[in-house]
Amino acid sequence: MRSFINSSVFALVLFVGAAAQAQTPPVPPVPKVPPVPRTVRVAPTAPAFPGQRTDTELRVAAEQNVNLKFCISEGELKVNGWDRNEVRILVRSGRKFGIRVLERAPRSGNATWIWATPTAIEGQTAAQRGECLSGDSVEMDVPHGATLNFHGRSATTSVDSVRKVSLKIVEGNISLRNITGGISASALQGDLIVTNSSGSLSLDSTTGNIIVYGLEPIESSDLLKVKTNSGSIMLQRVGHRQIEANSITGSLQFEGGFLAGGIYNFKTSNGTLRMLVPENGNCTVSAAYGFGSFNAAIPVETITENITPGGKNVVAKIGTGEACNVTLTTSSGRIQIVRLEP
């Protein structure tokens, strides 16, 4: 009995100790930082202003190398180069606009930097006014040496005979001709056609086709970069020595000669790579393809060939193969080298 009492007292002491330990305040939880609400940036639809659809024409004296920037929300845009030292802008059935001269030439006083933007109307806020031209059609005449820098929402665009163009259009076809100083064009939805132009070119379309015809580099290092997600690419008579062309699900066709010192890189995921080249060329072709095929209709000399299931690699020479390098890559598409008729 005495030992039981002793043991009970000992148990009670341990119990009191355990209870004191259990009432120790717990570690406070670390406060969770509330997530910063994401800024939703949604482009509003083009505001309509009843009663404002008028024809507006403005002119301003400008240098040959004038730089013109603007934005167009909707309409058909035509830009033409002319010989005058003048910029003329005509908006048919659209919003009124103004021409802001941001910079002038010190000697002549002509504009060297112009911004075309809608004019303020009483009662409108800046957000309502916006920065984009709008109308049924927008026509511009600019000096040949002009540089255009614009972006737009929904516009069918045609630019002819200017020096340099940089544009981004959400929706609408783009046609660029006689651009002498280089192009940077991006069309999210719409075809992109570039003809008879020169300089370094970067052409990008998300869902449209890209057609390029008659390009020449200004310098030998000028790059031609063409990319589309689901459209097709056609390159015809291109004089650039550095070409990167990539279509993810579309086909790609190159027509013309491979130039000495050239580096050509063509890729497609499951489209066809079709090279129409003269058989008297002089280039090394490296073709890598997964589940597709490789077919050469002109005389080529196979240097190495590694054919394994799912991954094939063929290196072949056209002529001596010393002048240039062509890399062709496709996952499940076909690679064809076809003879180009002279």
Binding site: S230, G290, T308, G310, G311, N313, T330, S331, S332
Partner: peptide
């Protein structure tokens, strides 16, 4: 659709590379 096409290509080529890691062409693709 484009994304599905690309993912299918990745899936196929990964299988090939897994079977033969030294397949340079499959790696490149």
């Amino acid at each position: 659709r484009d994304l599905a096409v690309v993912e299918n290509s990745i899936k196929q080529m990964r299988e090939v590379v897994r079977k033969n890691p030294n397949n340079q062409a499959a790696r490149q693709v």
